[in-house]
Amino acid sequence: MRKIRILVAKVGCDIHERGALTMMTVYRDAGMETIYTGRFQSEEGVVNAAINENVDFISVSDLTGSLVIICKKLMDGLKEQGAENDIHVICGGIITDSDREQLEAMGVLGAFGTGYPAEKTVEFIQDYMKDKLD
């Protein structure tokens, strides 16, 4: 049976792990397979992990306000490996309005700020994957 696979990632020296850990259990309870990279990863490492695990989504969490920088590198990395159409990026954490615009422009599928209901994120993912599960 096809399952949605998600890589929960944390990049750089952000220590705030609660959001990532919470999303992991939320994804699990929604019947998805969640893989966690652990903290302090590089963008290159996250892209490699995503490709090896053949995930549908990278769900990157960051609370230092660096999501634009991180996501840019992730998107570039995925493009370099030719995986940008199969592996999508969503992010959560501290996101300003201008961040959101930039994230959208670079092709990040969803940007969910702090306080956004976790169930809505799950709905978003399930909705997106609806026709892609065979």
């Binding site: 994804y27 699990r28 893989i35 652990g38 990863q41 290159e44 490492g45 695990e53």
Partner: peptide
């Protein structure tokens, strides 16, 4: 999980140092 069918595959967390190594291929399975 026998209830949701989902899983938290956390083994990778301990192997994070090998993510950038092209000669290591780690795959998590539920």
């Amino acid at each position: 999980s026998p209830f949701s069918g989902g899983a938290v595959l956390g083994d990778r967390v301990r192997m994070g140092t090998h993510n950038t190594d092209a000669n290591v291929f780690i795959r998590s399975l539920g």
